[in-house]
């Protein structure tokens, strides 16, 4: 059998799943985005109404801006925290066993339910929650802070809580492959600790940072449930725009928004992929 045929046979199941449940749905969404809708049903058509409405509405731009804002802030925070944690694990923990154990400690929450992890912030952030009680007990504030829960703050807090892991893992993975002699050389050449991190470790960690960035940015941009739950439905992002339309059975309008969101995400990823070769970094 030729090399191609064996390759195709082995890749066929993956191709079949991606074809049926990824490619076909995308095609379907693109088609439906040109359809029309009544209050109760959708009908085939070829009209640009959905897009015209989408681009004609000021809400769209506001919501896209909010989505980028969430992505940018979450990215900055997860990168800072993720880099620091990975740096500690990779360069300050000396035995491999401890490294693996602490690394697992960081990754285990990833395998538990996101929704439960969001719910678990309620007793912390609520009006009578732990944070407010503590601040009042310490005499720092007199009135409970209202912006702790159901605000941009709680949305971003939840994003950071859920997704910092996606930074820690690839950055740690890249750091573990850095030749320790390079750090020693930097030190011998008179570099301070900061200089070593900034001029040696950071540039060498770029591929890991890029992979983490791809994960965090796409997860935040595509999210709808975290924003809905953590803001008590008071904030919006593009995902919520789509899910609201779905709730109202306005599938064509949801599809049009989805197409624009998908193009936006793919453009961002396309730019990021120019900086890293994922297959080489694994």
């Amino acid at each position: 059998m030729s090399r191609n045929v064996i390759g195709w046979l082995q890749a066929a199941p993956l191709a079949a799943v991606l074809g049926c449940f990824l490619a076909a749905p995308i095609v379907m969404i693109v088609i439906v985005s040109f359809w029309g809708a009544t209050e109760y049903s959708i009908y085939p058509a070829f009209q640009f109404d959905n897009y015209e409405f989408l681009f004609g509405s000021a809400v769209t731009y506001k919501v896209f801006l909010a989505t980028f804002k969430y992505a940018a802030i979450t990215w900055a925070l997860t990168l800072t925290i993720g880099f620091t944690v990975a740096y500690f694990l990779a360069f300050h923990v000396r035995s491999l066993q401890t490294q693996i154990a602490l690394f697992l400690l960081c990754t285990i929450p990833f395998w538990t339910s996101n929704i439960i992890r969001m719910i678990s912030w309620i007793p912390f952030l609520g009006r009578n929650g732990i944070a407010n009680q503590t601040l009042i007990d310490w005499g720092l504030i007199d009135e409970p802070l209202e912006w702790l829960l159901y605000s941009d703050f709680s949305v971003i807090l939840a994003f950071v809580h859920l997704y910092t892991l996606f930074m820690v893992v690839p950055i740690f993975n890249t750091m573990m492959r850095i030749d320790k002699n390079l750090l020693e050389a930097a030190r011998d050449a008179g570099a301070s600790g900061w200089q070593t991190v900034w001029h040696v470790v950071l540039p060498l960690t770029k591929p890991g940072i890029m992979i983490g960035t791809i994960f965090v940015v796409t997860l935040v941009m595509g999210d709808f449930i975290t924003v809905r739950f953590m803001s008590g439905s008071q904030r919006a992002n593009v995902g919520r725009l789509i899910s609201n339309d779905i709730g109202l059975l306005q599938y064509p309008s949801a599809a049009a928004t989805a197409v624009v969101l998908l193009l936006t995400v793919l453009m961002v990823i396309g730019i990021l992929l120019r900086f890293v070769n994922i297959r080489k970094e694994l």
């Binding site: 390759g7 195709w8 191709a15 791809i214 595509g222 995902g239 989805a258 793919l266």
Partner: peptide, 27 residues
């Protein structure tokens, strides 16, 4: 091994990873 279409399939898998989940659900 390289096979014809492997690049396309790889990018398909990456798309699958980065596509907003609600799009899969909706589609």
């Amino acid at each position: 091994k390289r096979f014809r279409g492997s690049g396309l399939l790889f990018y398909g898998a990456i798309t699958s990873l980065v596509i907003p989940s609600i799009l899969v659900s909706l589609g």
